[in-house]
Design a protein around this nucleic acid. Structure first.
Length: 644
RNA sequence: GCUGGCGUAGCUUAAGGUGGCAAAGCCCCUCCUUGGUAUGGAGGUAGACGCGGGUUCGAAGCCUGCCGCCAGCCCCA
């Protein structure tokens, strides 16, 4: 047998017989490494530990410390799930079973849906199979043989037909189970130590709603029981922070069937937070050269036909209102209105950039199943603006928007976010306007802008707006799920659609470029995010109630009210709890309402014109004069302090 | 919209597999208590069990159609 040369991560090279497997190499390095090994990287490709290496290669043994390992591990667990399902329900047809961010899933086609009880049975069966310590074995099969073998598994056949080369790989799990799969996998089921099946849901074959709907089982898997438990705890924590739950408990907003789903009602406390957010961003925009405008929530459909919304965005709009003389629509976006403001007079290059901003309310006909609390609604108010500028100004405008975003995030205490460049899907001309030149230009401009700011981003094809590419800023929630909040879009399409112009230095008409941007997203979505970010315990500057005055007995009621008045006239949001209850009780209530400061006042405080300050997190802060407390809370307010 | 689960007082939940007067805690109201840093005591109001139709002597429970909520698919600020 011939020798090959492998290179290890430390750069050392060693000759080994051809056909050696990564696990052999691991063993030769150290038994501990062999034990910890999950998978290997051979010349950049992930290999099963048992897969022979036939030629000179760079080899790296991956353990649970490498992120790819968890993917492989979960993928193997998904196979274990499929094997268990087939043992229990042999008539089931297999779909696909990939690892995902938070675990894995497997799609099944089966006449009767799985029940929660089935889930338990399946999980038990998985453990049973796990204990057999079955190997995951890589098998090579010729395409035609494969098609024959999987003849009664329609989804597998389809996959093999579409994806398989002349020879493809399959993985067995014990004598019964075999699955068309690229791999790699862990060596055997004994490696799998901690997993849990979480939920059942419908999912369309290949994600297309025209296709058959399958039964998807979600689960998660970790290397250790501890990691699994931590994850489950985080799930609990996420539930605890759920803005829908806190929105009810803290009386922030409500939804009412009679109003309609996706149409939340803002209660006084929630409205206070929203108002503070609105005032905040309007102020920042004023300081950044924006002009605020007001435009109506509806328009004749002609406006949206001209902009292209009607053609490309129709499905997301509420149906037409057919009036006697005209047809109206509720606006799904604000841009056309702002465009008409730009167009309302002749513009000179000296006027540019024109930055028109509005807290614009818009309406989107989200499908009922997509609605959720405050974060997915049908009526929403966007912190919207449209910048009309010359091509030369794009870069600077872009970077000043980014600055605005970063400033806002800092003041709101938002730290977990990533940048995503959303591009069009060229094939989808129904969703995206068909104009290669403009798309190329827009995408190039955005890339250059990001690169010159030195900011890292990922690219997402098919996520663009219908009129152009966008730079989305994705915020991560407690569970790490990302969602678009801020967005900056460079648009060459709408200005040409509306034949916008400005008069240049040369006295001739030129076409401006439009930048669509939203900094703090919609009020609905941002408040939902903030509720979850702070678990309802808002920083002082955003707290709907900043201080609760708690008189110890009725004797201090009058004094308590004067404290309230002094603070309120200084702009602090204060309540007084005058109920005939003990302080303990009042403190508990204020605590549950997550009010930052409790001001306990008894006879002593009254005599000395003081308040006894209790902080929701740090407890008793001792006695202070009203003035010094006021100075303290004012500082927090003015500096928009987010930590406590 | 689709698949699955769910829908009981303002809120959180119980009973509900075998159809026969619907429970509790919190909230709220009244009274007692005036108490110093997480719930003082007593009493009270409150629900024809999401809505409509059906089966039945009788339905919260069974059947059926809607509506809404939750998870996911799809979509997305």
């Amino acid at each position: 047998m011939s020798n090959i040369e492998i290179t290890l991560p430390d750069g050392s090279k060693q000759p080994v017989p051809s056909g050696v497997s990564p696990i052999d190499i691991a063993k030769s390095i150290s038994p501990r490494l062999a034990d910890a090994a999950i998978v290997a990287r051979v010349d950049g490709e992930l290999y099963d530990l048992t897969r022979p290496i036939e030629k000179d290669a760079t080899v790296q043994i991956l353990t649970s410390r490498d992120p790819e390992s968890l993917q492989v591990y979960r993928h193997s667990t998904a196979h274990l799930l499929a094997a268990a399902v087939l043992e229990l329900f042999p008539e089931t047809k297999l779909g696909i079973g990939p690892p995902i961010e938070s675990g894995f899933y497997y799609d099944f086609d089966r006449a009767t849906p799985f029940t929660p009880e089935d889930l338990e049975k399946i999980e038990k069966k998985m453990w049973e199979i796990q204990k057999r310590h079955l190997p995951y074995e890589r098998v090579y099969t010729r395409k035609e043989d494969g098609l024959r073998k999987y003849a009664d598994a329609w989804m597998k056949c389809q996959l093999i037909d579409e994806r398989a080369g002349e020879v493809f790989t399959e993985y067995t799990l014990g004598p019964q189970f075999i699955d068309f799969c690229r791999g790699p996998h862990v060596p055997d089921t004994s490696k799998i130590k901690a997993f849990k099946l979480l939920s059942i849901a419908g999912a369309y074959w290949k994600g297309d709603e025209h296709n058959k709907q399958l039964q998807r089982i979600y689960g998660t898997a970790f290397f250790t029981r501890q990691d699994l438990e931590d994850y489950l705890h985080r799930l609990e924590e996420a539930k605890r922070r759920d803005h829908r739950r806190l929105g009810k408990e803290l009386e922030l907003f409500t939804v009412n069937e009679t109003v309609g789903s996706g149409l939340p009602l803002w209660l006084p406390k929630g409205a206070t937070i929203r108002r503070l957010l609105e005032e905040y961003i309007l102020e920042r925009e004023r300081a950044s050269g924006y002009q605020h405008v007001y435009t109506p929530d509806l328009a004749k459909v002609d406006l949206y036909k001209r902009s292209g919304h009607w053609e490309h965005y129709h499905d997301d709009m509420f149906p037409l209102m057919d009036l006697e003389t005209e047809q109206m629509v509720l606006r799904p976006m604000n841009c056309p209105h702002h465009i008409l403001i730009y167009e309302s007079k002749q513009r000179s290059y000296r006027d540019l950039p024109v930055r028109l901003a509005e807290l614009g309310t818009m309406y989107r006909y989200e499908r009922s199943g997509a609605l959720s609390g405050l974060s997915r609604v049908r009526a929403m108010t966007l912190n919207d603006a449209h910048i009309f500028c010359t091509p030369d100004q794009i870069k600077e405008e872009f970077s000043s928007v980014m600055k605005l975003v970063e400033r806002a995030y800092r003041d709101l205490g938002i730290t977990r976010y990533t940048y995503r460049l959303s591009l069009r899907d060229k094939a989808n001309t129904e969703k995206f306007v068909d104009n290669d030149e403009m798309w190329e230009l827009g995408q190039r401009v955005l890339r250059e802008a990001m690169d010159s700011l030195g900011l890292p981003y990922t690219e997402a094809p098919g996520e663009a707006a219908f009129y152009g590419p966008k730079l989305d800023i994705q915020l991560a929630d407690v569970m790490g799920h990302e969602e678009t909040y801020s967005t900056i879009q460079v648009d060459f399409h709408l200005p040409s659609q509306f034949a916008l112009t400005y008069v240049g230095a040369d006295g001739k008409e030129h076409r401006p470029v439009m930048i669509h941007r939203a900094v703090v997203s919609t009020m609905e979505r941002m408040v939902a995010y903030l509720i979850e970010l702070y678990a309802g315990a808002f920083p002082v500057w955003l707290a709907p109630v900043q201080a609760a005055v708690l008189p110890i007995t009725d004797r201090q009621a009058e004094y308590a009210r004067t404290i309230q008045q002094s603070l309120e006239s200084a702009g602090i949001r204060v309540t007084v709890d005058e109920r005939s209850e003990k302080v303990n009780f009042k403190i508990r209530e204020a605590q549950l309402q997550k009010i930052p400061y409790m001001l306990v006042v008894g006879d002593r405080e009254q005599q000395n014109g003081q308040v006894s300050v209790r902080h929701r997190k740090h407890g008793d802060q001792g006695v202070k004069t009203l003035e010094s407390f006021l100075a303290e809370i004012r500082t927090l307010n003015d500096t928009k302090a987010v930590s406590e």
